[in-house]
Amino acid sequence: MALFPLTSNFEGDFVLQLVAVDTENTMDEVAAAAAVHSVGRRVRARPDCIMRIRRQGATDFLPRAMKVHESGLKPTETIEIIWEPVRH
């Protein structure tokens, strides 16, 4: 359990933002923490989508249940939060 700073690059937003998470947080929780600073402020919510996390430049998402301390992310590293359509 330790505070961990990340840089949020949220799909559709215009600026990188500092997001404080916990090393025990899952990627879904990280996405939710990042969304607080973008969704409803400058980005519209998309109920048809979930939010996924990937490293900048990567094509694959990190597993949703993966914890920050398992991810290999470095403090302040930039993550992309991407809208993924929900499969029905």
């Binding site: 840089t7 937003d13 215009f14 990188l16 933002q17 500092l18 404080a20 607080v36 600073h37 900048q56």
Partner: peptide, 27 residues
């Protein structure tokens, strides 16, 4: 806002790009 924008270690200004349909923001 409820957090800080991440700023550039050279120009010291927010790191930004085009949003919306032209989203191209990059670190």
């Amino acid at each position: 806002p409820e957090t800080l924008p991440y700023v550039c270690n050279m120009c010291q200004l927010p790191i930004l790009g085009t949003p919306g349909k032209g989203w191209n923001v990059k670190d």
